[in-house]
Structure formats: C-alpha cells, structure tokens
Nucleic acid binder design. Structure first.
Lengths: 327, 327
DNA sequence: GATTGTATTTTTGTGGTATAAAATACGTCA
DNA sequence: TGACGTATTTTATACCACAAAAATACAATC
C-alpha cells in the first residue's frame, strides 16, 4: 500500500480546527498560574487586580494577561468593571482545583505515560511510531516528547529513537529515588542562609494539619501527594541553594507522574503528614540540626514502608551508615 | 529603519549550502563518539571493527555508522579493506583530540555563552533578538536554545522570552554548586552496590598520575579540567544510583561551560589531582567510608581555595557541620 | 499619573513539500 | 553463518507562506 502519496495529496481544509485548542491551552495555563499566584496573596472580594502586577510577575505582555483574566472572569473567580479592570469576585475564596482544560497535548502526554508504566510501550520508540499509534500529528508528538525530555522521562538517542529513561516505574528506580532524597533533603536545613518564608510555612502547616486529622479511610490520595510534594519543595526552596532546590523539584516531578504505579498505604500517608509537621515545627523554631535528623528519619521510614525492596543488596554496615542513625 | 521588509524579501538561493554542514556535523558527532568508544577498549592496529558492534553500542543503524567509520578512515585512524570492513590503523594509538569540526551551531552556542558570561547579554532575551544580533537563522537559534535548555542554562518563559538561569557565572552560583556537590559526592561511596569499573579506574589513575607529576607551570588547564570532570563522573556512575549519577553529570556540564570565567590557581589543580588519586585508591581498596571522608575534604578544600567567598554568610556552627570535620 | 481599552507591529507557530538522513531489505563474499 | 556492500523504504529536517499569539504603541478614562 502506498500511504505516502495518499497522505500527501490530501487537501487541507481542517486548518482552523487544529490550531484553536492550542490557543485555549496556553491561555488556560497562564490563567491557572495567575490563579495560584493570586491565592498565595491575602485577597478579599472587591480587591483590584491590576494587569501590570501580573505582567511583571510572569514576564509576559498585557495581551495574554488580559486574555487569562477574562478567562477567570468567565469562571466567576474575577469580575470586570468597565474602564476599571478586574476585581476579585465572591466565588474566589471557595475556588479550588484547576482551570486548565484537557488539551490534545496533555491527553497524549498522559496516554504515553500510562502505556509506558504498564509496559505497553517499549523502552525505545520513534516519533513516527507514536504518531501512528495515537493518531496524533507529528508536531504534537514532538512537543510532548520535548516536554517529557525536559522532565527527564525520555531522552533522544543518536538516531531517530527516543528512549525512556528508567523513571519511577520500577522498584529499583523508586529505591534509587528514595536514597537520592535521603542524601539531599536532610542537608537542606544545614545550608548557610536557610530561611523559610513565614506565609508559606503557615499555609503548609494548615494543609498538613488538615490531612493529618483525617481518617485513613476517607483520605484523598491525590491531595495528600500534592501536599507531600509541596512540603518537600518548600524545604528545598528554603535551602537558599538553587541546585539543591532544583534537584528536589526534579524528583517531585517524577513522583507526581508515577502516582498511578505507586502503592502507598494510607496509614503511612497520615503518619507522613505528622512527620512533616514535626519537621516544619523544628525548622520554624530554628532548630535546624533537629529538623535535619527528623527529615532523615522521615525519608528512611518512607523507604522502609515499601515492602519487598528494603535493604536489597545492601551489606548491613553500609546500610546503617545510610540510614543515619535510624534504628 | 524597516528591517522587516528588507529581511523578508531576501531571496533564498543558498539552499544547498545551509544543510550541507549539518550532515557533516551529525556524522562527525557520531564519529567522535565512536572514536572515544574505541579508545576505551584495548585495541591494536589490525584489529577488526565490525559495524554491528557500533550499531548496538549507539542504537543507530548501519548507515550512519558506516559514514562515521568512513570519516575516521579519511583521517587515517582506521583503514578499510574491500569486502572485509574497517580495521584499526597504525595512526590510531597516537590519535588524540577531536574530530568534530566547528559548526554554525557550536559557533553560536559558544558566542552566546561567552557574551552571557561577560554580561553583554541580558538575562532575558528573545529568539528574534539573538537571530538579529548574531545574524543567524531562526532555526539555528532555536536549536541552540534547545540545547542550552537541556543543559539547564536557559529556560523558556511563558511568553516569547528565554531567560538565562544563574549558571556558574557568579561567585554565588559557584558557591552553591560546591555546597551541592559537598552534599552529593561523599555519599556516592556509601550507596549500596557501589562498584567501580576496573578498566575505568585504571585509565583514571594513569591520567591523574600524569597530571599530578607535571609542574604547575606547564599544566594544560583544559586537560586538567577534563580529567577532574572524568573523575567525578566516574565516581557518580559507580554509585549504582542513576539519580545521583545524573545530578553529578549535570554539575559537570555546567562546570565545563564555565571554564572561561573560573580562575583556579594551577597549584591547587595539582593538589586536586593528588587528592583524586587518594580517593581512587581508597575506593578501589574497598575502604569506602575513608573514600567518602577524603571526598568531603577534597571538595571542602576546593571550596576554600576560591578566595573571597569562603564562609560567606555561614554561621560558624553550621559551617563546621557542613564541612564534615574538615578542620 | 497610573490604569484600562483598542489598534498596530513584531514575533512565533503551523502546515505543506522537497530533500537529507536513517532504517531496512537483500544480495554477495569470506 | 556472519559480515560487508548496495538498493529501497521509511523517517526526519529545511524552507516557505501564512495564521496566531505576544509585544508594543497610543488613546481614553478614572
């Protein structure tokens, strides 16, 4: 069969159709970032939201900012008054969750990850192969591959192949990840210039306290993971060392992607929240060496909580050194 | 001035001219990788180099491998016998240095880094701005930007801007980098499954010994840095933890780019080589805790060797904890 | 005087096609 | 049988024109 000539001689009428969702996607992305940015400030209904502040915060011009604010207005989070601009609406405080819609990009992104984690995709693929399999255009496939590359999920090989790096899809990789964090995160508190943003610490504390107070039964796993990640990233940011913060953030991204294949018992998650609170308290009180010790214990406990691969291959002496005094 | 119409109405005759160097560049890149790969093996003149081995090692088909091997043949490093394939030539053992030619991409890459390190480029640029400034095509600029993004030098902002991340271009960043490595690298030896490739250890040892024996006067700075990086990357790879190895590799890339702005006294480099040798010896002997201690001392010494920003902002107590017992 | 609303310019992204590069298939020789 | 040499098919890239998005300039309003 000659698919070449058939495909190439195809006329191109659906031209407007393909580009429309992309615009919506970029606007929604900015809208979402603006929303979380607004929520981090203490704003009340009726407060003015000048465009200029958003343009400066995100380094974009007024045009996309206005589009994003209009989008938030449509959702009832902001309100618009003629010649006055945008204002916080009543529905703002209760707003929770995402604004972003499902885009072709994110759909393909998720589908690829899902199929890869369940081993339906080989470790080596070509862009053309993915485009055929998911009936997506080459442009979309390449965008998604580039995004995955940025997150450290895939890497471009020399030829036409893209290879999946071992992400957190195997027990081995999860163990590696834990041991890596066990090296990094306790050190955060011992960096010169460690400083925790007070507002951020307060927000973290309330979110963690709420989760810790819940029963193991009706725990929202997704929210628990996000709180977990937010905590660890905040500690990284407080370290005053951009490489440390970035390394922790990279791990967070991987962990977020691997949720589906991770099986953490809810009871452990609750316990984890309590440990986070204790670490936070020590850090806020300026007791940094204690915070580091608690963090080490916390990560070691999480490592131990995964059945079946604790202590794998580690001679006893070295293991004790790794765990840093955890019993 | 209306640069728009002038630029856009430009005719486009040099069509073949622009793509030709690119082919040569990709071939040369593969040729260079194959060369270093061959040099890591113990090969003697006359030995056969089957194409299949290279295709398997680099995951590319025979077509580019053959082109690359032909390139190496042109340079006298291999020789070709009809119907028999490629063989190691006499000139192979003495070959040193690179095969890759200067490409438009690498020229732009270097120019951008140079201008950025010397603050002639702002932290925020647009692709169009770069294309005008360096009189390069958009495609080249975008390729270079993508490469810089992969190396963690720039990042794409929301709008049309690319922002330079703080690389090793400031004392502050260099200190961050050192403190980060001070966390990571001593831990390498304490990972379960730490294993150093014997051949690689031998090569490292001989290279380091040669450098350490030289006088501070006639030291090849470029080679010294490469040996330094090779040593640290080898330790990372031996850690048996891919995240740890990757983090170290990321730091190496940044260090390599920042050579121009780094001012390390040659005497310190020599000393550094001796320290590398001691660490290597301890690691090979299986004395891993000692290797970790030596690595900590080594990095702390390097941190101290930079005048003007040691101990900056670190309260004495914490600093002592950081240095891990270094006096 | 600063901020919003609107129009204009600049820059970026997309789709189509020719061409280069890589992968593959197949025949040939040691 | 396994390696090389050659031809063919498949895949990726360069380039162009045009549409979309962002940046910018300017007028109007509080």
């Amino acid at each position: 069969m000659p698919p070449k000539s058939a495909a190439r001689s195809g006329i191109s009428p659906p031209r407007r159709g393909t580009s429309a969702p992309r615009r919506a996607a970029t606007q929604a992305a900015l809208a979402e970032r603006i929303l979380t940015w607004l929520q981090q400030q203490d704003l009340k209904p009726g407060n003015h939201v000048p465009e200029r502040l958003a343009t400066e915060a995100f380094h974009v011009s007024r045009t996309p900012v206005r589009a994003a604010l209009a989008l938030l207005t449509e959702q009832g989070l902001l309100m618009r008054r003629d010649q006055r601009g945008f204002f916080i609406a009543d529905g703002f405080v209760t707003a929770r969750g995402t604004v972003a819609a499902e885009t072709p990009d994110s759909a393909l992104h998720d589908a690829i990850l899902r199929d890869r984690f369940s081993k339906r995709l080989d470790a080596e693929v070509t862009a053309a192969h993915l485009a055929r399999r998911y009936r997506a255009s080459r442009a979309v496939v390449l965008r998604v591959l580039n995004r995955l590359q940025k997150d450290g999920i895939v890497e471009r090989a020399l030829g036409q192949r893209w290879v999946f790096l071992p992400a957190l899809d195997s027990l081995r990789s999860q163990e590696d990840s834990h041991r890596f964090r066990l090296i990094l995160e306790p050190a955060v508190f011992l960096q010169p210039g460690f400083a925790l943003d007070p507002k951020r610490a307060r927000d973290l504390r309330s979110a963690l306290a709420e989760l810790a107070g819940q029963g193991a039964r009706n725990l929202d796993l997704k929210r628990a993971l996000e709180a977990d990640i937010a905590f660890h990233e905040a500690m990284g940011d407080a370290s005053n060392n951009r490489f440390l913060a970035e390394a922790i953030r990279r791990q967070s991204r991987l962990r977020r992607l691997a949720t589906s294949s991770m099986q953490v018992p809810p009871a452990r998650l609750i316990e984890s929240c309590r440990e986070h609170l204790a670490i936070l308290e020590a850090a806020v009180a300026g007791n940094l060496t204690r915070a580091a010790d608690l963090m080490r214990d916390h990560l070691a406990a999480s490592l131990r909580a995964r059945p079946g691969f604790v202590n794998r291959g580690a001679p006893p002496m070295l293991r004790a050194a790794m765990m840093g005094g955890a019993r």
